[in-house]
Simulated scan of single mutants.
Amino acid sequence: METIGFIGTGHLGYPIAENLLRAGYTVKIYNRTREKALPLEQLGAILVGSPEEAAVKGGIVLSLVADDHAVKAIATDALIKALGAGGIHVSMSTVSPDISRELAALHREQGVEFVTAPVFARPEAAAAKLGNAVISGEAAAKERIKPLLEAGFAKNIFDLGTDAGSANVLKLIGNFMIAGAIELMAESLALAEKNNVDPRVAHEMLTSTLFTGPIFKNYGTMILDRKFTGNPSFSAALGLKDMDLVLQTARRSYTPMPIANLVQSRLTSILAKDIHDADWIALAMGALEDAGITS
């Protein structure tokens, strides 16, 4: 098996890198905080000191970082040159469509393909390879990386064509729909509780009949259990970043999104209260508190 580069072993990147190692790939890993990647060294990972050191000529580098600034910081001329002609940079981050289009053009100038493949999965789903990938980029490059996505996290892969930004648009849509579902459930469960209907019975009935998807089941349970803070798998700060990107994309395409404005406000309120260990499920606190329910 070929040697793969991997940049960014945070909450989501770590289990994906671990899966690739367990699948037999040699993985060169760069993480800004080296200590967080040290356990992967015991599985055979090669830890390196810079993004470009993770690259192999003509090979593949996967990156999974926090935001536009971070992906631009690692997608340097040095990394592109280290990959060289025939190389592929796979961006699995949730970033703006515009930054992906910009980086795709920069990579292509030097014969390197840039494929966007944002991850639809929380860390536990990625670890179990039950995630979903949406991909956009050049056709041959996408075919080459599919086995890595399947080995790393993806149960399903959806191809969105050649525009590097398309996969990012769909990822933002998906995250917006999850945030909207959290708000919907929080308001509904608050209404049940305020009218003396057991919210757990309401949730059980609704998620076993009309709303059977994992988002309603899993996030609904987290709302009922008030699992808002602690060690977040996906932080409120990252959720706010994504809603900012959703609304940025919406403004540029003249698409009104009033629900996105609401959940953006909910997440802003969480951070304004200095609740910095909050998972983005904590946006549900707004609806509960508005109804006078202690969260």
Rank of each mutant, 00 (worst) to 15 (best):
A284L: 05
G10I: 07
S235P: 13
K57L: 14
T249D: 02
A70H: 09
L21P: 08
S96L: 05
L283T: 12
I275W: 06
D225V: 07
K142Q: 02
G161E: 09
A186V: 09
T268H: 08
P51I: 03
D68Y: 00
A272S: 15
E41Q: 08
P232W: 00
P214A: 10
T249M: 06
L247P: 04
F158V: 06
A127D: 13
I215M: 09
K72L: 07
P214F: 08
A66N: 12
A154V: 00
S166W: 09
T294N: 10
K171S: 05
F176W: 12
K171V: 03
W280C: 07
R22S: 13
K57N: 14
F176R: 11
D159G: 09
I88N: 01
G8S: 06
G292M: 04
Y254C: 15
A250R: 03
K36T: 11
S188T: 10
L240G: 08
L106M: 14
G111P: 01
G213M: 14
P15H: 00
S100H: 09
I173R: 11
L267V: 13
N231Y: 10
L206Y: 09
M257L: 13
T162L: 12
D68P: 02
D244Q: 14
L170M: 08
H276E: 11
D290S: 15
A164Q: 01
E18Y: 06
A104D: 07
S265P: 13
E52F: 05
L184E: 11
L21I: 09
E113Y: 12
E18L: 12
L21A: 11
A236G: 10
I178H: 06
I215W: 05
N231A: 15
G230S: 02
G87F: 01
S269T: 14
E187Q: 09
D225C: 02
R252G: 15
Y254E: 15
P15Q: 02
V95N: 08
V201Y: 13
I99M: 04
